[in-house]
Design a protein around this nucleic acid. Structure first.
Lengths: 338, 338
DNA sequence: TTGAAAGCGCTAACAT
DNA sequence: ATGTTAGCGCTTTCAA
């Protein structure tokens, strides 16, 4: 019986109640009209629509989400939004989710690596599902987090059956690259490795280990590296010292850095040295020479993550990881051994 | 007096009510503890925290948003998430907004250009504010939309005083480029224009018009173009026919396309032809030769958009557009006239 | 310091 | 076909 309590915060400009009053109907009827429920007399519906137009009403999606229990919004958490690789994945997720009428909330964890699980939770608490890209998260942390943010899709990591997974087969991909080089006659190959903590780097290493066993005559030397342009640029001395005639760079960025250095040093590619990258980032086709690399459909990975997630959300029980095979794209940076 | 009505939709796993019951306190107390309100006895607070931990409770941000009237989430609407330019802006917005504790919802309008205003509204209805990047929207549409999505920041368009604005001065930028070329001795310059509908292309055209007036001895020919790699690649014949000794491409992508073609045709850059781009996308420094271009701090534009928006949201009344001046970055693709 | 209850803006079950 | 009302899960006022 208490009087209406005043709220402090600025209230929404026009609500369903305003429309109801203006059109002389109940909130329920307005809701029906707005949502296209057909059981409303045409003249009433028309009146409601007129009020909506006149007052410029658009429904609060927040209220709608609370009432419905779903928001038709998903979250994407990535390590670094500035990185083209994650941008591609994001784009793929977005395109696929948008097609199903879902919005996407993004966040990265660059500034706050420690708060990764907290961020995941927070995002999940505003959305219906999560796409998680967390290459550096430890496995125990990951396995602890997953049950708390279901439904969740994980990109480029294995999770047992704790989440839907979309991933790239880096181990197989790097072997394709090695095979390509060997077929060109190279038998001393340098591998410029990536960051120590990177899971995808480990996969590449495992792939190469397998390759060595199958090809005893081929020597693949691993050189410490990283993932940046500079790492490639700076690797030249080590490569020269290794006597390799071909180099497999961790990724395209590194390869491009190396290419820049080789140009400065007057080393002809591919005549004196073959160079390969990985990822096929958009500009690898424009380098001089264009880069031979493994093309990875990152946008497809993102789309697949959504597809699997969506399937899970709609009750389907399919938790087999979808794995993407990178495909070899031969361009001008590789050639026969001198 | 009616019995509790059953809801159909799956209800939230653990709610504040569950914690309250488990800890033997009221919802209000749980809310206080969770939000760090200090007026709670330490032993009670401890009990609540224990329940939270035991039941794994995290508050529904949707309910919180509805109650609070704000979501601490903003929306970013861009034409195409696959485009590195918008990705950079998005990244800038995200970084800045995240620093202030805001989440960001993204969407693009590629699939549904017509629904652009609807999408803007929808996004705005789930967020506290909007960053709008809509280079192709007509001005009437834009001016009609803005009042309905306040507070809103608009990127790279003028809006009078109807919105907060962050923009790049393309007109001034292109004149810097022209001046650079003229200082190198060029007097016949081709401008590969961008898409007809693009506002930033118009600005470039205006800039060049002004330039021509100031430099009567210089001839700047406009060649129909576009914004893609192919447009640059295909422009070669027209350029050759024009007799130009230097070309200003609409942007870096176009310039890179042209560079690729020139390489194929055996035309030496910059000895036989100087080429410039615009934007300084990440890979322009790695092309052969590296591209002379105007560096645009797109991420800074995004950050500025947020900063202005945030100021507006917190009651400050500053609506002067913040304009970014591109800066000339001279690399290897330009040189003295032959 | 704590609790009861109103209210945020909507949807849907139920009654008419 | 339309209205009434009980929620959705929180926050906050007010009373105790």
């Amino acid at each position: 019986m208490a009087a209406k309590r005043a709220r402090k915060h600025p209230v929404r400009e026009t609500t369903i109640q305003d429309i109801a009053a203006h059109a002389g109907v109940s909130k329920a009827t307005v809701s029906r009209v707005v949502n296209g429920v057909p059981t409303v007399a045409e003249d009433i519906a028309e009146r409601v629509r007129a009020s909506v137009a006149e007052l410029g009403y658009t429904p609060s999606q927040t209220a709608r989400s609370l009432s419905l229990g779903v928001s038709r919004t998903i979250g994407v958490l990535a390590p670094d939004l500035a990185n083209p690789m994650f941008q591609q994945v994001l784009h793929g997720v977005h395109r696929a989710a948008a097609a199903d009428g879902y919005r996407v909330l993004v966040a990265d964890t660059l500034e706050d690596e420690a708060g990764e699980t907290g961020a995941a939770q927070d995002i999940r608490n505003r959305t219906d599902a999560l796409v998680l890209i967390a290459p550096r998260m430890t496995r125990p942390e990951l396995l602890d987090l997953l049950p708390r943010v279901q439904p969740v899709a994980v990109v480029n990591r294995t999770t047992g059956r704790n989440a839907v997974v979309a991933q790239v087969d880096y181990a197989a991909g790097i072997q394709v690259l090695a095979r390509h080089l060997v077929s060109l006659g190279h038998s001393r190959i340098a591998f410029l490795s990536g960051p120590e903590a990177s899971r995808s780097n480990h996969e590449r290493q495992h792939g190469l280990t397998a390759f060595r066993e199958e090809h005893p005559g081929i020597e693949i030397m691993e050189l410490a590296g990283g993932s940046s342009f500079e790492h490639g640029y700076d690797a030249w001395e080590a490569i020269r010292a290794s006597g390799a005639t071909a180099v497999i760079a961790f990724n395209d960025i590194v390869a491009l850095g190396l290419l820049g250095r080789l140009d400065e040093e007057g080393v002809h590619v591919p005549e004196e040295l073959s160079v390969t990258g990985f990822d096929d980032i958009p500009f690898s086709r424009f380098s001089a020479p264009p880069l031979t690399t493994m093309t990875v459909d990152l946008s497809g990975v993102g789309a697949a993550a959504w597809r699997e997630l969506h399937a899970e959300m709609t009750g389907e029980e399919r938790r087999d990881p979808v794995v993407f095979m990178p495909v070899l794209t031969v361009r001008g940076s590789t050639g026969p051994r001198a």
